[in-house]
Design a protein around this nucleic acid. Sequence first.
DNA 1: CGAGACATTGAGTGAACTCAAACGGCGTGG
DNA 2: CCACGCCGTTTGAGTTCACTCAATGTCTCG
Lengths: 220, 220
Amino acid sequence: MPIGLDKADMQKLDEVVATRRQVKQGELLFRSGEEFKSLFAIRTGFFKTSVATPDGLEQVMGFQMAGEIIGLDGIVTDHYSCNAVALEDADVCVMPFSNVEELSREFPVLQRHVHKVMSREIVRENSMMMMIGNMRSEERLAVFLLNLVQRLYARGFSQSEIILRMSREDIASYLGMKLETVSRAFTKLSDEGVIEVKQRYVGILDLQALKKIVNPRACD
Amino acid sequence: MPIGLDKADMQKLDEVVATRRQVKQGELLFRSGEEFKSLFAIRTGFFKTSVATPDGLEQVMGFQMAGEIIGLDGIVTDHYSCNAVALEDADVCVMPFSNVEELSREFPVLQRHVHKVMSREIVRENSMMMMIGNMRSEERLAVFLLNLVQRLYARGFSQSEIILRMSREDIASYLGMKLETVSRAFTKLSDEGVIEVKQRYVGILDLQALKKIVNPRACD
DNA sequence: CGAGACATTGAGTGAACTCAAACGGCGTGG
DNA sequence: CCACGCCGTTTGAGTTCACTCAATGTCTCG
């Protein structure tokens, strides 16, 4: 969280995140339509957010891990617009939004932080739209894996190994494709020697090659 | 903008939006990478926001009209992440973000408003992702037209007629398809008697039918 | 009136979809 | 401890929708 505050201030901020909540795997943190009261900061665990499509299917909006904030979608209508389900046992900080707003007024650094978190989500979704609109199935999967491994790496996990917490169907929904297509894309990347797949384990064998799939020229 | 403030307060708020800026058709309001200083509230005119894809193409992120706010994407990195170009002569309020934040601290109602605007953008993009991921070309076009006509109607324009300010290519990019496919989708809807198309003029002939295309069951 | 940009239409291809079957791990109960 | 059944995943075959490439049509503006 934001830094550069003295001890007394820090204590005040701690009050915002005083409450904790445990969510067991498979349980909902909040559901679509439920009244919005709080944002949640994930301490541990892994979440999936999704909405029901008009025709009764599920559309996955995102996957969230430790350090990320969920519930931002609820602000605009005072009701959450999506479901948040724990894909593994999780522990979250409950941050009543009224507290967040109140303290934001008092601490510009917190205010700025909140704004950045929301802006980041907007930009993230921008790039998702770009990806789904323009990329082919393997490219999407490559982007997905790169993003995941990068976020995990930033949290101290391996740079080259992933244990997926979500099903192929979840991935498919998230990436705008069908589960069979996801499976085929995994197989293809595996056949090419870029990754190694065994069920939900994914090993990155050739990071450069994976990046090259996403952006053929300028493979930084 | 937010209401429920006395006269003196209103004056203070007016200071935020004191500066105006004219943008001629085809001109950029801001460009990707440029330093972020302000949000912009559109007074009149019509904008398109877009980013360049790695392979040099343009991905349209959205279309904005009077009363809407652009520039939110710039907060997170202090640099705009997209280009904003005027599709018709426009007039915007320049709102220096530092002023917005400062006054947000003073006026909770403004603070709440800012948060809602950002949250709305997040939810909007959620539904865009859902649409691009799940719908077929005609459905996407139907959603696009319904959304556009609804926003225009809310601003006092016709409920059944649209003059498109963007090209087929822009629409295609926005909806995650190719311009030829957009054209064919227009033709198809036209052949079905649902809409009437003459270049950039679109007349809605059968609103119910259009809604039904988006959501076959429960055509409210 | 002509040039250029934008839009439509056509034909053929290809990527992702649907439907269907086989496979594999994992947990449960015999 | 092994057999069974279930669920998630993989693989296969055939189809469809949107894409590419190309030509034609139409509007706008100098």
